[in-house]
Design a protein around this nucleic acid. Structure first.
Lengths: 191, 191
DNA sequence: TGCGTAGTGTCAGTCTATGACACTATCGTA
DNA sequence: TACGATAGTGTCATAGACTGACACTACGCA
């Protein structure tokens, strides 16, 4: 393997985040990001699919971490408990990167196009969870449903956490799952 | 009020859906859509914010319908039961437009950019639900959580419905909410 | 030393999206 | 009936996101 390219990619990620924060996403051009990273526009698009993706490359790491965490939960644990445990196991790692998470959050919250991409990444995470749930024996429909709902709960916890400097992510995740018990009280026909 | 513009907007929506299906989203240009609708490119962008939005204009109608349905549920109904009732009340209207829904679904499912926008629309729907839940006395954090989770469940039901010609949307919505009771069995610390 | 490969630069081009300005159709009113 | 206000449209010009093609270069390995 020759020249790695990882260094350039890192510089691009850093430069993009800086510029998005300094002058806003819409007021930043790819040319400016590339220039700050010391490469050309064309190289930017070789590393990232589009202007948004540069902010979400780290999600790949989280996706893999989640898949690993899910695989690590003992098979004896009930499906949703396994999901909760896997989610909780990711909290410490995120707490460490809180500063970066906050910086990204500011930009994303201010930019509709980025919020959209964030939802897409959450959906990708949900697929990882669904795979794991199917692997634990849940029928596909149920697995997908519970994966999407669990991921939505996780997303809400993360959003609260990143917006509140004094919040504890792990506690929020637990709280979210706990409050979902409210569904047990819903009145449904013949049930 | 002068010239209404609604006619041109309708033609644009129709033309876009046709072309997206005929040759795919990426292979379709705004110029082609506009030409088929008998207007110029510039007029397209006056009616729709971007190339994706033209497929999601109808969601506005559904958003309003959902808000109305939520307001119509008696105040006596518990919050999540109210959400379920409101969701179910939308099923008949969607069943009527099944053909259109299927056509849109094919295009959306085949196009990542459109799936992304679909998620954004679901998030918008979730905000409507959250508003209603807060209006019913739920604390904000809980309202947002349950709104996002409920909307995720609705989305899963709708996706299943649109992909299976023999499916009954109302039954799927009920089923989704029923299966969410599984969260009651999750093991959480000190609870 | 030379070969293969991954990464990069350069160039040209297409398409999305927006701003500015002029024109036109329709409605309400004098 | 004439007229002004307003919403919709066309035209023109332009920025900026993205892509394909081709040449070049740095690094790892035989």
């Amino acid at each position: 393997m020759p020249r790695s390219g990882a260094a350039a990619r890192d510089r691009l990620e850093r430069a993009a985040l800086e510029l998005y924060r300094e002058r806003g996403y819409d007021q930043t051009t790819i040319a400016e990001i590339a220039a700050r990273a010391g490469v050309t526009q064309r190289t930017f698009f070789r590393h990232f699919g589009d202007k948004r993706e540069v902010l979400f490359h780290i999600e790949l790491r989280q996706q893999r971490a989640l898949a690993a965490a899910l695989a690590d939960v003992p098979a004896a644990a009930p499906p949703l408990t396994a999901v909760l445990l896997a989610f909780r196991s990711m909290a410490p790692g995120m707490e460490i990167n809180r500063a970066l998470a906050e910086a990204r959050h500011h930009v994303i919250a201010a930019t509709p196009a980025l919020r959209e991409r964030e939802l897409a990444k959450a959906a990708a995470l949900s697929i990882v969870v669904a795979d794991a749930l199917r692997g634990r024996g849940l029928p596909p429909w149920r697995a997908t449903l519970l994966a999407e709902v669990s991921t939505a709960a996780l997303g809400h916890a993360v959003h609260t956490w990143v917006a509140d400097a004094s919040a504890d992510l792990d506690a929020l995740i637990v709280r979210a799952f706990t409050e979902l018990r409210a569904f047990a009280d819903v009145t449904v026909p013949s049930a």
